[in-house]
Design a protein around this nucleic acid. Structure first.
Lengths: 330, 330
DNA sequence: CTGAAAGCGCTTACAG
DNA sequence: CTGAAAGCGCTTACAG
């Protein structure tokens, strides 16, 4: 593979000039047009692709960003990663994606790798479920950090998130608007701020309703939704919930299965609302009503914040709105 | 951040010795135990993490693997990537994940990036849907390549895949075994060898049946499954299909919706079989019968093949078995 | 078993 | 506007 020296030789200039013509970054340096053209020509002829390794070593900028995600198998995160990828690629940065599976030890391992690769910054999704040990491990890298999802403890790092509280209130309001009184919340783990915010939004909207708020905490999975709903539906009809606000679509899908099992017709017998807007929801019967998060935009905004941080600017948290998606289940 | 010189100074040795103690790769070099211990101690004290950039530049081995996937939003691929990640990490290699979205231009762009990063090899999933231009672009990198999914054109590169033909036959046999005669195949794009193999397996198993094989080609999406099934179910009952073998779970989910829309009860009125075993399938009603692919194992095997290639060994294609998952829909 | 030194392929003050 | 040269942090023959 051709090196900068090959290009310099062919263009009849020094390697410094080649570097100045071909390197996007760094302080802009004046080069005569004719010289630049010759260099570009030579680079094209030789199919020259500058080594990111050498560039990173010399410039103290690897052009690499660590992108931490709790679970790529959860359909939400590939979307976030996709949004992040797009804006990173546009800046010439590559993403090193780390799938932690919510395991602090894996996070720590990955952090070692990211340090070795000399990533320029860290973007951590699933920020709402980081435990103190994770936060400490992140801090120990001394790298710029941007979180996706507001952390439980204030860290001083910028974060981007969705207004879960407002979105949850809107969802519950919609449910109440269909005439239901007994609205139950299938919650995710309260340790996650996103889940806690959704539960708080539910509670706030239920305030003053004749039927008291009822929150069933789960781990957020489809299986948990199925089990919790099965239990709820064992109550006598007169006291049975008329609507379910699930904190995740996966919970909602599980709930739907349990409801069908006992012969209920949705939304007639039970209104159901999810959260996340998984693509699959539109193909269920009844089609799932839910709350859509701007997943790609979350990733994109996080990278933009990281870029600001790298440029030495102050960065404020970014809160994006979520959107009600009314289909058939509610 | 501490450098190799810092460690050498603290341990009272040369940087060559530090390198020899701390570097896993390369020809094993004898070092006195006491010296090695001193070096390790110094490294720990200084929280030294060798620079992968410098290491890569000096050794001509970046320790980076390009991992190409057609669509991370398809739940199949995060599993493949996860399996790949695990074995790569165990070897001290990092994955640069590239999401091409099936777009040849994006592939070409990513290939530039991967060349710049000096990846040691390429692992390309979605190999079954690569077009000649993609194959040419891959070849032009002059990098070792391993494909996941048998390519339509023989490339000489090793590949790992699933025995789709056999798995499809087993699925169709199961459907026929429930007493259905009119079994239709909802196929994916025939240009993909995986999809073509599944269709061929269906045809082979239908050979000699009273009812002739009927293949409806689609793009493999849930929406396409819904539309195709709606059309199929418009036929008079006497001539209507009694069983559907869908080439993907997404097709099956769409088909399920269309069947429910016209008031059918599954599996009584229509047996349904998917392919892929998406996690969500177990939570549908009826629970989706399907074919499970060893997704993680595909990724793991591909990395192992790439490692073999890097070690200079010859590598044969790897064909993994798929497995019938019988639940409720068939 | 250990070290001095060249070299990997770039960037970036510094001079002119 | 251009170039010579130091330096980034490692690995690896080569010598001893």
């Amino acid at each position: 593979m051709a090196t900068i020296a090959d290009v310099a030789r062919r263009a009849g200039v020094s390697i410094a000039t080649v570097s100045r013509v071909l390197s996007p970054g760094g302080a802009p340096h004046p080069v005569k047009d004719a010289t630049a053209a010759r260099v570009r020509r030579a680079a094209t002829d030789l199919d020259y692709v500058p080594s990111a390794l050498a560039r990173g070593l010399a410039s103290h900028r690897s052009g690499l960003l660590g992108f931490v995600v709790p679970n790529l198998a959860d359909p939400h995160y590939p979307l976030v990663a996709g949004g992040a990828e797009d804006v990173a690629a546009a800046e010439g940065l590559a993403l090193l994606v780390c799938n932690t599976l919510g395991d602090s030890e894996r996070l720590a391992d990955y952090l070692r790798v990211l340090r070795a690769r000399r990533v320029d910054a860290l973007v951590v999704s699933g920020g709402s479920s980081l435990v103190p040990a994770d936060l400490a491990a992140l801090a120990a890298t001394h790298l710029p950090v941007v979180l996706i999802g507001r952390p439980a403890i204030d860290t001083g790092w910028p974060w981007v998130g969705v207004d879960n509280h407002t979105a949850a209130r809107a969802a519950v309001r919609h449910l109440l608007g269909t005439g239901r009184r007994r609205v139950v919340h299938l919650a995710g783990p309260a340790a996650q701020t996103t889940m806690a915010d959704r539960a708080a939004g539910y509670r706030a909207e239920m305030e003053g309703q004749v039927w008291p708020a009822l929150v069933v905490e789960t781990d957020g999975s489809a299986g948990a939704g199925e089990r919790a709903t099965r239990r709820l539906l064992q109550k006598p009809v007169s006291d049975r919930s008329q609507a379910l606000f699930a904190a995740t679509d996966r919970l909602a899908i599980g709930a739907l299965g349990a409801a069908i099992d006992v012969g209920l017709h949705l939304p007639r017998d039970l209104a159901l609302m999810g959260f996340d807007d998984l693509p699959i929801g539109a193909y269920l019967r009844p089609r799932l009503s839910t709350v859509a998060q701007p997943a790609r935009e979350l990733g994109a905004a996080a990278i933009r914040s990281a870029l600001e941080l790298l440029a030495g600017h102050a960065v404020e948290p970014v809160v994006l709105p979520a959107q009600l998606v009314v289909r058939e289940s509610a």
